[in-house]
Amino acid sequence: MTAVVETEGLTKFYGKRRGLEDLNLVIHPGEVFGYLGPNGSGKTTTIRLLLDVIRPTSGRVTVLGTDPRDASVRSRIGYLPGELFLEGRERARDYLAFLGAVRGGVPRTRIEGLAERLEADLSAPMGKLSKGNRQKVGLIQAFMHEPELLILDEPTGGLDPLVQQEFLTMVREVRASGRTVLMSSHVLAEVEHVSDRVGIVRAGRLVAVEDISALREKAVRRVEFHFDAPVPREAFENLAGVRDLRVEGAAVSCTIDGRPDALIKAAARFTVVHMVSAEPDLEEIFLTYYSDEEARHARAGVEESA
């Protein structure tokens, strides 16, 4: 099986500013790859390199087996930009027809079918589309020619929850048909339900590539318990995976790594009135598991600038 995306030492500097450094990444056929990182970490830089919008400073990249500079490969890619700009008085339907024609022809019924699924309004002039509708038009154009590789930069921004669900269904369908998806996000929650693997990029460097199930094990969750009476601190101390413990009267809050089992069993000894468990925060994964990595790069950064 040849890789759908393969990079070797892929590096991009904007002048002296680092966009991406030494990226080695392989994406396999038929997988959904989540590309995670905070804003400005290098996600969009990577994606633009894959699409030949910008050129690498050094390193090598192949997409669907060829150099992205070969324009013909782009008819086999569907791309949703992180920020999609559409303007003018042309109707969205006509713009989609144009994009379809250039990519080798897309049946009208497929465009209408996608529009129906996403509840997109294609009759409005593009300059007057709402943010949500604009994003839907972007998704339709990315999916409509049934590309072998979908590259979606922050795909769910601006979509309401029902449409997000429909979008995730579409992504699963793409995977089921053996095609490949690369989607970026700065929120783990957006990609964790569909991704097979995730790559985490931070300050221009890929710091980890993980199986999604492995990452979830490592995820840090903030948990709060409220009891009907004050509880002793000792009951929650030194539990496996529990950190940042705070006990204030009848309230206990902490973060947990991995399994919450020990904490739940400790709490079960008292009367729980209320419990809050926040979604794992990607930022906290960075801070806990990759803090060593980060510190190393921070030092390297200081040395570079010195």
Binding site: L51, D52, A71, R74, S75, Y79, P81, F85, L99
Partner: peptide
């Protein structure tokens, strides 16, 4: 500058054309 060129650029049309 308005960002609308990006999608055009990712069509299967080479830059010179």
């Amino acid at each position: 500058e308005r960002g609308t060129l990006e999608l055009t650029l990712t069509l299967p049309i080479d830059r010179r054309r």
